[in-house]
Nucleic acid binder design. Structure first.
Lengths: 181, 181
DNA sequence: TTGACGGGAGAACGTGCGTTCTCTACTTTA
DNA sequence: TAAAGTAGAGAACGCACGTTCTCCCGTCAA
């Protein structure tokens, strides 16, 4: 097994376990078992657990925003594109292994103890907010709408994470539709 | 020191430390130091750390909802009462030791591992939502507004927890005002 | 064929922490 | 005053886990 695939498998296992159970509840030995990558190799690739956590959040950030943008880009109408964000959230919430927003969870668990993780969470949320801002601008809508739309999306994510189900996305979408006028 | 005050001091220390640093980052020895209650007494009052966590969330839940209701009740107009929720959030976010919503944080940290904590978080959020629903009903507004208002408040709490500052409350308040029509 | 190298399995080490135990000093009561 | 019970300080215990080390085996060059 070459280095690149070992790294991928390690990150696959890290993402699956960290996201499902939380970071502190997953030991390096669990990661070895789930990834098939030996402890020695794991520590060659990631000198400490915290770096594996950071790499997990980083890779997931890229993929999460990519999937969102890809889904939104399928719509033509700029106003529909904004609502498509909430449709995509509904789809995400409905996935069987959905466990809430990985960044909100990570912040609750590590935000107070790891400044690097806190920074990653802030920059992920900032990027998401800026993406919404761009959609609002493209639709020729006032910038003041960005904040409320962002808060609706965040509220939907945290609520779906706690209660499960896709209803928060539908509620948020409906509220967004009203705000768009 | 009698049992009741020892219990109060233990809970005071637990609330201060758990809320500021997270549950897992605080040891029983830290709690002893911060509370002045001996380890022996702590274990007489709370047979295990998890029960101290539950008592902390329970007591905070009662106080949090009490303070909110008390602040809202000062307004006469039913519609103003709804907006007062967001004013109270702004005031809360501005407190110097504000560290986000204790229940969202606890859920991110322990939701996947402790079913009891997860249940406490769900019931706290359910109570908050029902409280909002009652305010909406009292104002003669359609029940469909409750969900969006709740999501705005949740989004504001999680965002203020991550980024700091009171701006999310003001944005949420403005969005709520638009939704109320 | 042999010797060196790399990698895997898992034991070992050190530390932190939840929980319990021990010892001592003080209070209370007969 | 003496005996007994109580509480506090902090040592001790057991375990989990992050990290490192050891041993062994397969591979490949000379």
């Amino acid at each position: 097994m070459d280095s690149a695939t070992a790294r991928e498998q390690a990150l696959d296992a890290a993402e699956k376990l960290f996201y499902a159970r939380g970071v502190q509840a997953v030991g390096m030995d669990d990661l070895r078992g789930a990834s098939g990558v030996s402890l020695k190799r794991l520590y060659q690739l990631f000198p400490a657990k915290e770096q594996l956590v950071e790499a997990y959040l980083e890779r997931r950030d890229v993929r999460w925003r990519g999937l969102l943008a890809q889904s939104v880009a399928r719509r033509e109408d700029p106003r529909e594109r904004i609502l498509a964000v909430f449709d995509w959230l509904a789809q995400w919430f409905g996935e069987p292994d959905f466990h809430g927003c990985a960044w909100i969870n990570a912040y609750g668990e590590l935000g107070a103890t790891s400044e690097r993780v806190a920074g990653q969470v802030r920059s992920h949320k900032r990027a998401f907010r800026e993406y919404l801002g761009a959609l609002v601008a493209d639709a020729g809508l006032p910038d003041a709408l960005t904040g409320p739309l962002f808060l609706l999306a965040e509220g939907a994510m945290v609520t779906a994470g706690i209660d499960g189900g896709t209803a928060p996305a539908a509620e948020a979408r409906e509220a967004a539709r009203l705000l768009l006028g």
